[in-house]
Amino acid sequence: MTTVSGDDIRDIMLESVKKRFGQQLPATPLQWLSDNSSTYTATMKRGYITHIPKPDRATALRNLAIAFEHYNEQHPHSALKHCSPREFRRLAKALT
């Protein structure tokens, strides 16, 4: 079984920021983890990481990126009125 290191997670997080912001830096500093970081970690471990195929490092990283995408785009969150984080942000933006 392939393990995913902290460096691997950091690389994925940095790629996510690059994908989100491109070459333009965000207007405000990024907050990597919220107060719910332990809940987030547990959800990622239980709901995603334990179930995704990890035959090698490249596959593990690719599937982890897919898991992050699903979590942010489709996974409902009770604290966000059962919307995904991105759906919640789109709805909030539409109301302003």
Rank of each mutant, 00 (worst) to 15 (best):
Q24N: 09
Q24Y: 08
L25P: 06
L25H: 12
L25W: 03
P26C: 03
P26S: 11
P26M: 12
P26L: 05
A27N: 07
T28P: 04
T28M: 14
T28W: 07
P29I: 01
Q31S: 10
Q31M: 14
W32Y: 05
W32F: 09
W32N: 01
L33P: 02
S34V: 13
S34H: 12
D35T: 13
D35L: 10
N36W: 02
N36Y: 12
N36C: 03
N36R: 13
S37Q: 14
S37E: 05
S37W: 00
S38A: 11
S38P: 00
S38W: 01
T39R: 13
Y40F: 07
A42I: 07
T43W: 01
M44H: 14
M44P: 06
M44R: 03
M44A: 03
K45P: 04
K45T: 15
K45Q: 15
K45V: 15
K45H: 10
R46H: 10
R46I: 09
G47H: 06
G47I: 05
G47K: 05
Y48T: 05
Y48N: 09
I49Y: 02
H51N: 15
H51W: 11
H51V: 15
H51G: 11
I52W: 03
P53S: 14
P53I: 13
K54A: 08
K54N: 13
P55W: 13
P55I: 09
P55D: 11
D56Y: 08
R57H: 04
R57K: 08
R57C: 06
A58G: 10
T59D: 02
T59C: 13
A60V: 06
A60Q: 05
A60T: 14
L61H: 02
L61F: 07
R62K: 15
R62Y: 05
R62C: 03
R62I: 08
N63W: 06
L64Q: 04
L64W: 10
L64V: 09
A65V: 11
A65M: 09
A65I: 12
A65F: 06
I66R: 11
I66Q: 04
F68R: 06
E69G: 01
H70Y: 02
Y71R: 10
Y71P: 01
Y71C: 06
N72T: 01
N72G: 04
E73W: 06
E73F: 06
Q74W: 07
Q74Y: 12
Q74L: 11
H75M: 08
H75L: 05
P76G: 00
P76I: 08
H77L: 01
S78P: 03
S78T: 09
A79I: 12
A79Q: 09
A79E: 12
L80F: 09
L80H: 02
K81A: 10
K81L: 13
K81E: 12
K81I: 15
H82Q: 14
H82R: 13
H82P: 01
C83V: 04
C83K: 00
C83I: 08
P85D: 01
P85R: 00
R86V: 05
